[in-house]
Amino acid sequence: MISLIAALAVDRVIGMENAMPWNLPADLAWFKRNTLNKPVIMGRHTWESIGRPLPGRKNIILSSQPGTDDRVTWVKSVDEAIAACGDVPEIMVIGGGRVYEQFLPKAQKLYLTHIDAEVEGDTHFPDYEPDDWESVFSEFHDADAQNSHSYCFEILERR
């Protein structure tokens, strides 16, 4: 099963200049909980913004210009990325925008964090048809001392 995991502000903004323009430790914990011990696929820009392999996960970098870091697996196509994951129950696609666009048609599940923030962004989550998805989990949280904005975790499964 292919799943996408993303944090989205208003207007589906997911990033600005290779960074997330908010401070939500709870979302980072949600991300870790849902990706640990699963292969993660990301684009080169996302890889560069993280700066290191995510521990406890097979890191697969999709790029037309593969790098030389041998701590991760470099691939040039969506099919190659899927094959590099091996026989696993769930593959997690973690961004960025172009990689989400490439995998959305193949995805069966979306793990979304909806952030109540209007922020400037240069990267967006692809538009998706809500009628194609069923919400199977939703959990709202107010902003607090650690988390700069209110947010809602949601899991959607393709109908």
Score class of each variant (00 low, 15 high):
residue 134 E to A: 08
residue 135 S to N: 15
residue 72 V to Q: 11
residue 138 S to E: 14
residue 10 V to S: 05
residue 112 L to E: 00
residue 76 K to G: 06
residue 53 P to G: 14
residue 70 D to G: 07
residue 50 I to Q: 01
residue 33 R to E: 12
residue 8 L to Q: 02
residue 65 Q to V: 12
residue 146 Q to R: 05
residue 154 E to G: 14
residue 5 I to K: 00
residue 103 F to M: 04
residue 155 I to L: 06
residue 129 E to N: 09
residue 91 I to P: 11
residue 72 V to L: 10
residue 153 F to I: 10
residue 122 D to A: 00
residue 59 N to T: 09
residue 38 K to M: 08
residue 16 M to V: 13
residue 108 Q to S: 09
residue 109 K to C: 12
residue 144 D to E: 03
residue 97 G to R: 04
residue 131 D to W: 09
residue 103 F to K: 02
residue 3 S to G: 00
residue 108 Q to H: 10
residue 83 A to V: 09
residue 21 P to I: 02
residue 40 V to Y: 01
residue 141 H to T: 09
residue 149 H to M: 00
residue 79 D to G: 05
residue 32 K to S: 05
residue 106 K to R: 11
residue 56 G to C: 05
residue 109 K to P: 01
residue 159 R to S: 13
residue 52 R to M: 11
residue 83 A to M: 10
residue 69 D to C: 13
residue 159 R to H: 12
residue 2 I to M: 05
residue 120 E to G: 13
residue 59 N to R: 03
residue 117 A to N: 04
residue 84 A to T: 10
residue 30 W to Y: 15
residue 32 K to L: 08
residue 38 K to E: 07
residue 42 M to A: 04
residue 24 L to V: 15
residue 38 K to L: 12
residue 116 D to F: 15
residue 52 R to H: 07
residue 71 R to D: 10
residue 24 L to K: 00
residue 39 P to G: 05
residue 31 F to L: 04
residue 67 G to Y: 07
residue 102 Q to Y: 15
residue 153 F to R: 03
residue 14 I to A: 13
residue 7 A to M: 00
residue 4 L to P: 00
residue 111 Y to V: 12
residue 141 H to L: 06
residue 69 D to L: 09
residue 36 L to F: 13
residue 127 D to P: 12
residue 143 A to K: 09
residue 13 V to A: 05
residue 70 D to S: 08
residue 65 Q to L: 08
residue 31 F to G: 01
residue 106 K to G: 11
residue 101 E to I: 06
residue 48 E to L: 13
residue 112 L to Y: 08
residue 51 G to C: 04
residue 41 I to C: 15
residue 17 E to M: 02
residue 66 P to N: 09
residue 98 R to N: 03
residue 58 K to T: 04
residue 98 R to M: 02
residue 97 G to N: 04
residue 29 A to Y: 01
residue 36 L to Q: 13
residue 76 K to I: 13
residue 28 L to M: 04
residue 37 N to K: 12
residue 141 H to W: 06
residue 58 K to I: 06
residue 4 L to E: 00
residue 98 R to F: 15
residue 113 T to N: 09
residue 89 P to N: 05
residue 92 M to H: 14
residue 90 E to K: 02
residue 18 N to S: 07
residue 77 S to L: 15
residue 9 A to R: 00
residue 65 Q to M: 04
residue 23 N to M: 10
residue 25 P to A: 02
residue 60 I to F: 14
residue 31 F to M: 04
residue 3 S to F: 01
residue 94 I to T: 03
residue 30 W to R: 10
residue 152 C to A: 09
residue 85 C to P: 11
residue 40 V to H: 09
residue 6 A to T: 15
residue 75 V to D: 04
residue 136 V to H: 07
residue 37 N to L: 08
residue 82 I to L: 05
residue 60 I to W: 05
residue 63 S to Y: 03
residue 117 A to H: 04
residue 68 T to S: 11
residue 26 A to V: 02
residue 48 E to M: 10
residue 74 W to T: 11
residue 137 F to P: 03
residue 52 R to G: 12
residue 107 A to I: 15
residue 101 E to V: 06
residue 120 E to W: 13
residue 116 D to C: 15
residue 105 P to C: 11
residue 19 A to S: 06
residue 10 V to H: 01
residue 81 A to C: 14
residue 115 I to N: 08
residue 158 R to N: 10
residue 55 P to R: 06
residue 31 F to A: 00
residue 57 R to L: 00
residue 140 F to V: 14
residue 60 I to C: 12
residue 76 K to A: 07
residue 79 D to Q: 05
residue 17 E to C: 02
residue 124 H to F: 02
residue 111 Y to H: 07
residue 26 A to S: 02
residue 120 E to Q: 13
residue 44 R to G: 14
residue 73 T to E: 09
residue 151 Y to R: 11
residue 148 S to K: 00
residue 106 K to P: 06
residue 103 F to V: 10
residue 111 Y to C: 15
residue 68 T to R: 06
residue 150 S to K: 08
residue 110 L to S: 02
residue 61 I to S: 02
residue 59 N to S: 10
residue 138 S to F: 03
residue 130 P to S: 14
residue 142 D to W: 11
residue 158 R to K: 08
residue 90 E to W: 04
residue 55 P to V: 08
residue 68 T to D: 13
residue 122 D to F: 00
residue 119 V to T: 15
residue 81 A to G: 06
residue 48 E to Y: 12
residue 19 A to I: 10
residue 74 W to D: 03
residue 123 T to A: 15
residue 135 S to I: 14
residue 71 R to T: 10
residue 129 E to I: 12
residue 80 E to Q: 05
residue 39 P to W: 10
residue 71 R to Y: 07
residue 74 W to Q: 09
residue 74 W to V: 12
residue 53 P to F: 12
residue 128 Y to L: 06
residue 44 R to L: 02
residue 152 C to K: 14
residue 99 V to R: 03
residue 88 V to A: 11
residue 8 L to H: 04
residue 56 G to Q: 05
residue 31 F to R: 00
residue 58 K to S: 08
residue 41 I to F: 07
residue 140 F to P: 14
residue 151 Y to C: 14
residue 144 D to K: 03
residue 11 D to L: 03
residue 51 G to F: 09
residue 99 V to N: 09
residue 77 S to Y: 15
residue 89 P to G: 09
residue 110 L to V: 04
residue 112 L to T: 06
residue 102 Q to T: 14
residue 88 V to F: 14
residue 2 I to T: 01
residue 111 Y to G: 02
residue 118 E to D: 06
residue 80 E to S: 05
residue 12 R to Q: 13
residue 149 H to L: 00
residue 117 A to T: 04
residue 18 N to W: 05
residue 17 E to Y: 01
residue 133 W to H: 05
residue 29 A to V: 02
residue 112 L to W: 07
residue 137 F to E: 11
residue 92 M to E: 01
residue 83 A to I: 11
residue 47 W to S: 10
residue 115 I to G: 02
residue 38 K to G: 09
residue 138 S to K: 12
residue 25 P to Q: 02
residue 42 M to F: 14
residue 94 I to V: 06
residue 139 E to H: 08
residue 156 L to Q: 13
residue 47 W to R: 13
residue 71 R to E: 09
residue 20 M to F: 02
residue 83 A to N: 10
residue 67 G to V: 13
residue 52 R to E: 06
residue 74 W to P: 04
residue 72 V to S: 11
residue 56 G to T: 07
residue 152 C to D: 12
residue 128 Y to M: 09
residue 111 Y to A: 03
residue 39 P to M: 12
residue 131 D to K: 04
residue 91 I to K: 09
residue 16 M to Y: 00
residue 114 H to K: 15
residue 120 E to Y: 13
residue 97 G to Q: 08
residue 38 K to H: 06
residue 28 L to Q: 00
residue 37 N to V: 10
residue 17 E to N: 04
residue 94 I to N: 00
residue 149 H to F: 00
residue 92 M to D: 01
residue 72 V to M: 12
residue 152 C to R: 13
residue 17 E to A: 04
residue 113 T to L: 00
residue 90 E to L: 02
residue 146 Q to A: 06
residue 154 E to P: 01
residue 151 Y to H: 12
residue 113 T to P: 00
residue 69 D to N: 07
residue 4 L to T: 03
residue 65 Q to I: 11
residue 28 L to W: 00
residue 84 A to Q: 05
residue 49 S to D: 04
residue 17 E to G: 09
residue 116 D to A: 14
residue 97 G to T: 04
residue 18 N to E: 07
residue 149 H to E: 03
residue 12 R to E: 14
residue 107 A to G: 05
residue 72 V to I: 12
residue 115 I to Q: 04
residue 35 T to V: 01
residue 73 T to I: 06
residue 117 A to S: 07
residue 68 T to G: 08
residue 67 G to I: 06
residue 135 S to V: 06
residue 82 I to H: 06
residue 9 A to P: 01
residue 51 G to M: 07
residue 86 G to N: 09
residue 143 A to M: 10
residue 86 G to H: 09
residue 52 R to N: 07
residue 82 I to D: 04
residue 154 E to V: 15
residue 134 E to M: 10
residue 8 L to N: 03
residue 107 A to T: 13
residue 82 I to T: 09
residue 85 C to G: 08
residue 9 A to V: 10
residue 11 D to K: 15
residue 68 T to I: 08
residue 15 G to E: 00
residue 33 R to V: 07
residue 53 P to M: 05
residue 86 G to T: 13
residue 144 D to W: 07
